[in-house]
Design a protein around this nucleic acid. Structure first.
Lengths: 193, 193
DNA sequence: CCGATACCGGACAAGACAGGTCCGCTTTCA
DNA sequence: TGAAAGCGGACCTGTCTTGTCCGGTATCGG
């Protein structure tokens, strides 16, 4: 699966909404607009606030405001804000004593390149590309079977050809995880496969 | 976190062991060598067998054998074998009706490039690089010379520099997740090789 | 031919983790 | 001063991964 948490997914949606509306938006308002439960939206906003992606304005007439345009926010930053550092394995570098299998582990200290590659890939994509203005015309995956037609690497992106995989990958998947559906609690809830 | 399952981690270790030993190895033997519980090793091997990465030989004198050298196995294939298709979001492609927030979801159908980027990154790294013969010295990008004279970009890997990211990433993390550490038997059994 | 070995396939239970919610407090504006 | 809104934390629930076990089947050696 290699999936990231739902909260991250929500964060992307909320941020996109925030930019779409412009100015200051309250958490309840954003919840209404996105269909995500209010407490959850608040939770996401709080995390984003800590990461410096949004600014929280307290008091009456308060709300949240984008610190930067979506174009200047790499996806990796959102993931870090919500999920924490990007790393595929749980074994922390410095904790040498925690892994009992260290002596027999042939991949010890070898995940770095992998993590770096993932980080680079996620940094090369900005939120603006995820929340593209054109509203998903064809509903599903764009005509060109695999690699996207083109999407200029974000500003934070290092050098690294943008996602052109040629492997016999599994069927492409995309979309939102499935927010809990608006207030009234809609029936279907994406069981994700 | 964005972490992958422990099973995948185990799979890498087991595969590395399989190549280190060469020939046919039984599941119990691999369990002994890696320090992972036998049933778990068997489970991993079974999954790898389905994916065509190893071949299971039944009957007495049976065991498992690598179908391909590690050099020809991209990391993405192992992840797919154990964790399933690589996709950051759970929203399945065809399930258009399951996501109630479709109408308000601004990122609908926009995760494809991200998934492709991740896939490409993981396909560019072969298991041979993860299970490099030398323990763990360099830490950073591996010098071209490894075990073999050269490793072609796996069989499925596109062209794409092997994991060289330059972003200000959080502290590097690496290593094995931490196998259950043989409880009573085999205290840190056989050496790395 | 028979027994032993080892894989195959599935199902199961325990535990950990994340998801989602609630509460009280503080800050700001009308 | 009261209301609106964010802030911070803790809590509970549900899901999922993890790890294990079972019976069945195929092959080898005696």
């Amino acid at each position: 699966m290699l999936r990231l948490s739902k909260l991250t997914d929500y964060a992307v949606v909320v941020l996109a909404r925030l930019e779409a509306e412009g100015g200051v938006q309250t958490a309840p308002c954003l919840a209404l607009a996105t269909g995500i439960a209010e407490p959850t939206v608040a939770k996401v906003l709080k995390a984003l606030g800590h990461a410096g992606l949004v600014e929280g304005l307290r008091g009456a007439r308060g709300g949240y405001r984008l610190e930067r345009p979506l174009r200047a926010i790499p996806l990796s930053e959102v993931i870090c804000a919500i999920d924490g550092p990007i790393a595929l394995t749980a074994c922390v570098d410095g904790a040498s004593g925690c892994c009992e299998a260290e002596t027999v582990c042939p991949v010890r200290g070898r995940w770095d390149p992998v993590n770096e590659a993932i980080r680079a890939a996620l940094s090369a994509i900005s939120l603006a590309e995820l929340a593209a203005p054109r509203p998903a015309a064809g509903r599903r995956k764009p005509p060109p079977a695999q690699a996207g037609p083109d999407f200029p690497p974000a500003q934070a992106g290092p050098e690294f050809p943008p996602a052109q995989a040629g492997l016999n990958a599994p069927p492409a998947q995309a979309g939102l995880n499935a927010p809990p559906a608006p207030p009234a609690r809609l029936p279907a809830h994406s069981p994700a496969e």
